[in-house]
Amino acid sequence: MSAENQATNRIAAAWLLTDMILVSAMTALVKLEGATYPAIQIVFIRSLIGLVSVLPLAWRFRKEVFGTRRAGRHAFRVACNAIALTSNFLSLTLLPLALVSAISFTRPFVVMIFAVILLGEKVRAVRWVGTAIGFLGVLVIVAPGSVSWNIGLLAAFSSVVFGSLASVQIRALKDENTAVLMVFYSVGLSVVTAIPAVLYWQPVALADWSILLAIGVLAQLGQYCYLRAYQMAPANFLAPLSYLTLVFATATGYLFFNEVPAGTTVLGVAIILLALHMTNLLSRS
Protein backbone atom coordinates (compact mmCIF):
# COMPACT_ATOMS: atom_id res chain seq x y z
CA MET A 1 0.00 0.00 0.00
CA SER A 2 1.39 3.44 -0.97
CA ALA A 3 2.10 6.15 1.61
CA GLU A 4 -0.69 8.25 0.10
CA ASN A 5 -3.24 5.46 0.52
CA GLN A 6 -2.11 4.84 4.08
CA ALA A 7 -2.56 8.53 4.89
CA THR A 8 -6.03 8.51 3.33
CA ASN A 9 -6.99 5.41 5.29
CA ARG A 10 -5.84 7.04 8.53
CA ILE A 11 -8.02 10.07 7.85
CA ALA A 12 -10.96 7.80 7.03
CA ALA A 13 -10.39 5.91 10.29
CA ALA A 14 -10.45 9.24 12.15
CA TRP A 15 -13.80 10.09 10.52
CA LEU A 16 -15.18 6.71 11.56
CA LEU A 17 -13.94 7.03 15.14
CA THR A 18 -15.53 10.49 15.36
CA ASP A 19 -18.79 8.95 14.17
CA MET A 20 -18.57 6.34 16.93
CA ILE A 21 -18.05 8.99 19.60
CA LEU A 22 -20.99 11.07 18.36
CA VAL A 23 -23.24 8.02 18.11
CA SER A 24 -22.26 6.93 21.63
CA ALA A 25 -23.28 10.34 22.96
CA MET A 26 -26.52 10.14 21.01
CA THR A 27 -27.21 6.65 22.38
CA ALA A 28 -26.77 7.91 25.94
CA LEU A 29 -29.35 10.65 25.33
CA VAL A 30 -31.74 8.17 23.69
CA LYS A 31 -31.38 5.89 26.70
CA LEU A 32 -32.33 8.79 28.97
CA GLU A 33 -35.43 9.61 26.92
CA GLY A 34 -36.37 6.04 26.03
CA ALA A 35 -38.22 5.47 29.29
CA THR A 36 -40.59 8.33 28.47
CA TYR A 37 -41.11 8.16 24.71
CA PRO A 38 -41.43 5.25 22.25
CA ALA A 39 -38.23 4.48 20.35
CA ILE A 40 -39.91 4.99 16.98
CA GLN A 41 -40.99 8.48 18.03
CA ILE A 42 -37.43 9.37 19.03
CA VAL A 43 -36.09 8.03 15.73
CA PHE A 44 -38.65 10.04 13.75
CA ILE A 45 -37.83 13.26 15.63
CA ARG A 46 -34.15 12.56 15.10
CA SER A 47 -34.66 12.00 11.38
CA LEU A 48 -36.91 15.05 11.07
CA ILE A 49 -34.30 17.25 12.72
CA GLY A 50 -31.75 15.74 10.37
CA LEU A 51 -33.99 16.54 7.42
CA VAL A 52 -34.36 20.15 8.51
CA SER A 53 -30.61 20.44 8.98
CA VAL A 54 -29.88 19.27 5.43
CA LEU A 55 -32.40 21.60 3.77
CA PRO A 56 -29.75 24.30 3.25
CA LEU A 57 -27.52 21.66 1.68
CA ALA A 58 -30.42 20.42 -0.44
CA TRP A 59 -30.94 23.95 -1.77
CA ARG A 60 -27.25 24.67 -2.26
CA PHE A 61 -26.64 21.40 -4.10
CA ARG A 62 -30.09 21.14 -5.72
CA LYS A 63 -28.57 20.65 -9.17
CA GLU A 64 -26.55 17.69 -7.93
CA VAL A 65 -29.53 16.25 -6.00
CA PHE A 66 -31.98 16.44 -8.90
CA GLY A 67 -29.32 15.81 -11.52
CA THR A 68 -27.83 12.66 -10.05
CA ARG A 69 -27.52 9.78 -12.45
CA ARG A 70 -27.51 7.29 -9.61
CA ALA A 71 -31.05 7.72 -8.37
CA GLY A 72 -31.58 3.96 -8.51
CA ARG A 73 -28.60 3.24 -6.28
CA HIS A 74 -29.66 6.00 -3.89
CA ALA A 75 -33.16 4.48 -3.76
CA PHE A 76 -31.69 1.03 -3.13
CA ARG A 77 -29.57 2.40 -0.28
CA VAL A 78 -32.61 4.10 1.29
CA ALA A 79 -34.67 0.91 0.89
CA CYS A 80 -31.91 -1.11 2.59
CA ASN A 81 -31.79 1.41 5.42
CA ALA A 82 -35.57 1.26 5.75
CA ILE A 83 -35.62 -2.53 5.98
CA ALA A 84 -32.66 -2.53 8.38
CA LEU A 85 -34.36 0.04 10.61
CA THR A 86 -37.70 -1.78 10.60
CA SER A 87 -36.03 -5.11 11.34
CA ASN A 88 -34.02 -3.54 14.12
CA PHE A 89 -37.15 -2.20 15.85
CA LEU A 90 -38.83 -5.59 15.55
CA SER A 91 -35.84 -7.37 17.06
CA LEU A 92 -35.72 -4.86 19.93
CA THR A 93 -39.31 -5.75 20.85
CA LEU A 94 -38.58 -9.50 20.91
CA LEU A 95 -35.00 -9.80 22.17
CA PRO A 96 -32.89 -8.37 24.99
CA LEU A 97 -31.17 -5.12 24.02
CA ALA A 98 -27.72 -6.52 24.80
CA LEU A 99 -28.29 -9.44 22.44
CA VAL A 100 -29.49 -7.19 19.61
CA SER A 101 -26.47 -4.92 20.09
CA ALA A 102 -24.07 -7.87 20.07
CA ILE A 103 -25.61 -9.32 16.90
CA SER A 104 -25.18 -5.94 15.21
CA PHE A 105 -21.41 -6.31 15.58
CA THR A 106 -21.44 -9.10 13.01
CA ARG A 107 -22.00 -6.35 10.44
CA PRO A 108 -18.29 -5.71 9.69
CA PHE A 109 -17.91 -9.33 8.60
CA VAL A 110 -20.99 -9.11 6.38
CA VAL A 111 -19.83 -5.76 4.94
CA MET A 112 -16.54 -7.33 3.90
CA ILE A 113 -18.35 -10.18 2.14
CA PHE A 114 -20.65 -7.80 0.24
CA ALA A 115 -17.70 -5.54 -0.62
CA VAL A 116 -16.03 -8.50 -2.32
CA ILE A 117 -19.17 -9.78 -4.05
CA LEU A 118 -20.74 -6.48 -5.14
CA LEU A 119 -17.76 -4.13 -5.48
CA GLY A 120 -14.99 -6.54 -6.38
CA GLU A 121 -12.78 -5.28 -3.57
CA LYS A 122 -9.71 -7.32 -2.71
CA VAL A 123 -9.38 -8.43 0.90
CA ARG A 124 -6.04 -9.57 2.27
CA ALA A 125 -6.00 -12.80 4.21
CA VAL A 126 -4.92 -11.00 7.36
CA ARG A 127 -8.11 -8.92 7.34
CA TRP A 128 -10.24 -12.04 7.03
CA VAL A 129 -8.38 -13.60 9.95
CA GLY A 130 -8.61 -10.42 12.04
CA THR A 131 -12.32 -10.03 11.35
CA ALA A 132 -12.95 -13.70 12.17
CA ILE A 133 -11.15 -13.31 15.51
CA GLY A 134 -13.17 -10.17 16.21
CA PHE A 135 -16.31 -12.13 15.41
CA LEU A 136 -15.25 -14.77 17.94
CA GLY A 137 -15.05 -11.97 20.50
CA VAL A 138 -18.66 -11.08 19.71
CA LEU A 139 -19.62 -14.74 20.14
CA VAL A 140 -18.07 -14.74 23.60
CA ILE A 141 -20.33 -11.82 24.52
CA VAL A 142 -23.45 -13.26 22.90
CA ALA A 143 -22.92 -16.77 24.32
CA PRO A 144 -24.63 -18.73 21.48
CA GLY A 145 -27.13 -21.36 22.56
CA SER A 146 -28.56 -19.29 25.40
CA VAL A 147 -31.37 -17.96 23.16
CA SER A 148 -33.77 -20.10 21.12
CA TRP A 149 -34.20 -19.33 17.42
CA ASN A 150 -37.23 -17.12 16.79
CA ILE A 151 -38.54 -14.27 14.66
CA GLY A 152 -36.63 -11.79 16.81
CA LEU A 153 -33.30 -13.36 15.87
CA LEU A 154 -34.33 -13.42 12.21
CA ALA A 155 -35.17 -9.72 12.40
CA ALA A 156 -31.86 -8.93 14.11
CA PHE A 157 -29.81 -10.69 11.44
CA SER A 158 -31.98 -9.14 8.73
CA SER A 159 -31.04 -5.74 10.12
CA VAL A 160 -27.37 -6.69 9.86
CA VAL A 161 -27.68 -7.90 6.26
CA PHE A 162 -29.58 -4.89 4.94
CA GLY A 163 -27.55 -2.45 7.01
CA SER A 164 -24.41 -3.94 5.49
CA LEU A 165 -25.86 -3.58 2.00
CA ALA A 166 -26.51 0.09 2.73
CA SER A 167 -22.90 0.57 3.87
CA VAL A 168 -21.57 -1.00 0.69
CA GLN A 169 -23.76 1.33 -1.39
CA ILE A 170 -22.04 4.29 0.25
CA ARG A 171 -18.70 2.97 -0.98
CA ALA A 172 -20.17 2.50 -4.46
CA LEU A 173 -21.30 6.14 -4.31
CA LYS A 174 -17.86 7.39 -3.23
CA ASP A 175 -17.73 9.95 -6.07
CA GLU A 176 -21.14 11.37 -5.19
CA ASN A 177 -21.39 14.63 -3.28
CA THR A 178 -21.66 13.93 0.46
CA ALA A 179 -24.49 16.45 0.74
CA VAL A 180 -26.47 14.48 -1.85
CA LEU A 181 -26.04 11.29 0.18
CA MET A 182 -27.21 13.05 3.34
CA VAL A 183 -30.27 14.53 1.61
CA PHE A 184 -31.40 11.19 0.20
CA TYR A 185 -30.83 9.48 3.57
CA SER A 186 -32.64 12.13 5.64
CA VAL A 187 -35.66 12.28 3.35
CA GLY A 188 -35.93 8.49 3.15
CA LEU A 189 -35.61 7.94 6.89
CA SER A 190 -38.20 10.62 7.66
CA VAL A 191 -40.70 9.10 5.24
CA VAL A 192 -40.19 5.57 6.55
CA THR A 193 -40.63 6.43 10.24
CA ALA A 194 -43.44 8.99 9.86
CA ILE A 195 -46.49 6.70 9.93
CA PRO A 196 -45.44 4.41 12.82
CA ALA A 197 -44.30 7.45 14.82
CA VAL A 198 -47.73 9.06 14.45
CA LEU A 199 -49.43 5.84 15.54
CA TYR A 200 -47.40 5.62 18.77
CA TRP A 201 -46.91 9.35 19.39
CA GLN A 202 -46.68 10.65 22.97
CA PRO A 203 -46.89 14.40 23.80
CA VAL A 204 -43.40 15.85 24.29
CA ALA A 205 -42.69 17.92 27.40
CA LEU A 206 -41.14 21.32 26.69
CA ALA A 207 -38.07 20.49 28.80
CA ASP A 208 -37.35 17.39 26.71
CA TRP A 209 -37.14 19.13 23.36
CA SER A 210 -33.55 20.27 23.97
CA ILE A 211 -32.42 16.67 24.48
CA LEU A 212 -34.37 15.45 21.46
CA LEU A 213 -32.83 18.26 19.43
CA ALA A 214 -29.36 17.20 20.56
CA ILE A 215 -30.14 13.62 19.52
CA GLY A 216 -30.98 14.82 16.02
CA VAL A 217 -27.90 17.02 15.71
CA LEU A 218 -25.52 14.32 16.97
CA ALA A 219 -27.09 11.76 14.63
CA GLN A 220 -26.69 14.06 11.63
CA LEU A 221 -23.07 14.91 12.45
CA GLY A 222 -22.36 11.23 12.95
CA GLN A 223 -23.94 10.40 9.61
CA TYR A 224 -21.72 12.95 7.88
CA CYS A 225 -18.58 11.49 9.49
CA TYR A 226 -19.69 7.97 8.57
CA LEU A 227 -20.25 8.95 4.95
CA ARG A 228 -16.88 10.68 4.71
CA ALA A 229 -15.15 7.59 6.09
CA TYR A 230 -16.72 5.17 3.63
CA GLN A 231 -16.16 7.52 0.71
CA MET A 232 -12.43 7.78 1.45
CA ALA A 233 -11.44 4.21 2.25
CA PRO A 234 -12.40 0.68 1.14
CA ALA A 235 -15.18 -0.98 3.09
CA ASN A 236 -12.95 -3.96 3.88
CA PHE A 237 -10.49 -1.62 5.67
CA LEU A 238 -13.13 0.18 7.73
CA ALA A 239 -15.27 -2.85 8.55
CA PRO A 240 -12.98 -4.34 11.25
CA LEU A 241 -12.64 -0.91 12.91
CA SER A 242 -16.39 -0.90 13.44
CA TYR A 243 -15.88 -3.42 16.24
CA LEU A 244 -14.65 -0.51 18.35
CA THR A 245 -18.29 0.57 18.59
CA LEU A 246 -18.66 -2.17 21.19
CA VAL A 247 -15.89 -0.60 23.27
CA PHE A 248 -17.54 2.83 23.10
CA ALA A 249 -20.92 1.34 24.00
CA THR A 250 -19.47 -0.49 27.01
CA ALA A 251 -17.66 2.64 28.20
CA THR A 252 -20.81 4.76 27.81
CA GLY A 253 -22.87 2.31 29.83
CA TYR A 254 -20.27 2.18 32.60
CA LEU A 255 -19.57 5.92 32.85
CA PHE A 256 -23.10 7.28 32.55
CA PHE A 257 -25.40 4.47 33.69
CA ASN A 258 -23.26 2.52 36.18
CA GLU A 259 -23.56 -0.60 34.02
CA VAL A 260 -20.65 -2.78 35.07
CA PRO A 261 -19.77 -5.09 32.16
CA ALA A 262 -19.85 -8.83 32.77
CA GLY A 263 -16.67 -10.88 32.68
CA THR A 264 -17.61 -12.31 29.29
CA THR A 265 -18.08 -8.76 27.95
CA VAL A 266 -14.60 -7.75 29.13
CA LEU A 267 -13.10 -10.90 27.60
CA GLY A 268 -14.96 -10.34 24.33
CA VAL A 269 -13.81 -6.72 24.11
CA ALA A 270 -10.22 -7.81 24.80
CA ILE A 271 -10.40 -10.33 21.95
CA ILE A 272 -11.82 -7.69 19.61
CA LEU A 273 -9.09 -5.17 20.48
CA LEU A 274 -6.44 -7.85 19.99
CA ALA A 275 -7.90 -8.69 16.57
CA LEU A 276 -7.89 -5.02 15.55
CA HIS A 277 -4.31 -4.52 16.70
CA MET A 278 -3.12 -7.66 14.95
CA THR A 279 -4.91 -6.76 11.72
CA ASN A 280 -3.56 -3.20 11.60
CA LEU A 281 -0.04 -4.31 12.53
CA LEU A 282 0.22 -7.10 9.96
CA SER A 283 -1.49 -5.03 7.24
CA ARG A 284 1.43 -2.60 7.34
CA SER A 285 4.02 -5.32 6.80
Rank of each mutant, 00 (worst) to 15 (best):
L227Y: 15
Y230Q: 09
Y224A: 15
L213W: 02
V192A: 10
L181Q: 12
S210Y: 10
S186I: 11
V183W: 13
A166I: 02
S190W: 13
G188Y: 12
G188W: 11
L218R: 08
Y200I: 00
V183D: 09
V198Q: 02
L221P: 08
L181I: 13
V168H: 03
C225S: 15
T178V: 15
L206P: 00
Y224D: 06
C225I: 03
Q169N: 05
V217I: 15
N177K: 14
D208I: 01
V168G: 03
A172P: 04
I195R: 02
I170E: 02
I170C: 03
Y200F: 09
L199S: 03
V168W: 03
L227R: 03
Q231D: 06
L206M: 06
A197Y: 05
V180Q: 12
S210P: 00
V183C: 12
T178G: 10
G216V: 07
D175K: 11
L173K: 07
A172W: 04
P196I: 08
Y226G: 03
N177L: 11
D175S: 14
I215E: 07
V217D: 08
T178W: 11
Y224K: 13
I211C: 02
V198M: 12
G216W: 06
I195W: 05
A179C: 11
Q202L: 00
L173H: 05
N177V: 11
P234C: 07
L199D: 00
L189W: 04
L218P: 14
A197E: 04
A172N: 09
Y226H: 11
I170G: 02
G216I: 06
W209T: 11
E176V: 13
Y200V: 01
W201H: 01
Q202E: 03
Y230D: 05
F184N: 12
A229L: 09
M182S: 14
V192H: 05
L199Q: 06
Q223I: 08
Q202P: 00
L189A: 15
Y230H: 13
A219H: 13
A166M: 04
T193Q: 08
M232D: 10
A207Q: 12
L227A: 10
Y230I: 11
V187F: 15
I170K: 02
L189M: 15
L221D: 05
V192L: 03
A179Y: 14
L173S: 07
V168A: 05
Y230T: 11
D175L: 10
Y185E: 11
L221C: 15
A229V: 05
I215V: 15
A229T: 05
I195H: 02
W201Q: 01
D208L: 02
K174I: 05
C225L: 07
V168T: 08
P196L: 10
I195L: 12
L199M: 10
G188E: 10
D208E: 06
V191H: 04
V204F: 00
I211Y: 03
A214W: 08
A179V: 12
L227W: 06
S186L: 12
N177H: 15
I211K: 08
E176S: 14
P203N: 00
V204E: 00
V198A: 14
A214T: 13
V204N: 01
G188V: 07
A194G: 02
Y226T: 06
A205C: 00
V198P: 00
V191Y: 03
V168M: 04
F184L: 09
G188Q: 10
V191A: 14
V198F: 13
Q202N: 00
A207E: 13
A197F: 04
M232H: 10
G216Y: 07
L181D: 09
